[in-house]
């Protein structure tokens, strides 16, 4: 049986993963790891989308997940290019050192 698992379980798992992503985003100091925590949050949201698509028996949620994955790929490409540029200019991946805009 496929629908034996209640949808609310998936939503709770999605919330937990999103929360862990936020924690990682706040706690990590390495800019690449911070980027990875953003991907974790996107994954958590995708899980919620698929769960809701399942709950309502509609495919729109799955199409949206597809677009989220595409945007995440584009975002990773540009973001990692920025990380490479920053690392070349600052010789450090620590976000504490990247404080040019800080007062």
């Amino acid at each position: 049986m496929m629908s034996a698992v209640p949808i609310s379980y998936y939503l709770v798992l999605s919330a937990i993963l999103f929360g862990l992503g936020v924690v990682a985003f706040v706690f990590k100091r390495n800019i690449i790891t911070i980027f990875m925590s953003i991907e974790l949050m996107l994954n958590a949201v995708n899980l919620a989308f698929v769960a809701f698509a399942r709950a309502h028996g509609q495919l729109d949620g799955l199409v949206f997940v597809f677009f989220v994955i595409v945007v995440a790929a584009a975002e990773a490409a540009v973001g990692l290019a920025i990380v490479i540029m920053l690392a070349q200019n600052r010789q450090s991946l620590n976000v504490e050192r990247i404080n040019l805009l800080k007062l």
Binding site: M1, M2, S3, P6, I7, S8, L11, V12, S14, A15, I16, F18, G19, F52, A53, R54, A55, H56, G57, L59, L62
Partner: peptide, 30 residues
């Protein structure tokens, strides 16, 4: 905040309604 979100999701109408098998079909998405 995390606890609150988890609690809300678990007790939301969507979560409880679907838990009883309403609205969800058994076959995989085509």
């Amino acid at each position: 905040l995390l606890l609150e979100i988890a609690h809300w999701l678990y007790h939301s109408p969507v979560g409880t309604a679907i838990a009883n098998g309403a609205g969800s079909s058994n076959e995989a998405a085509d």
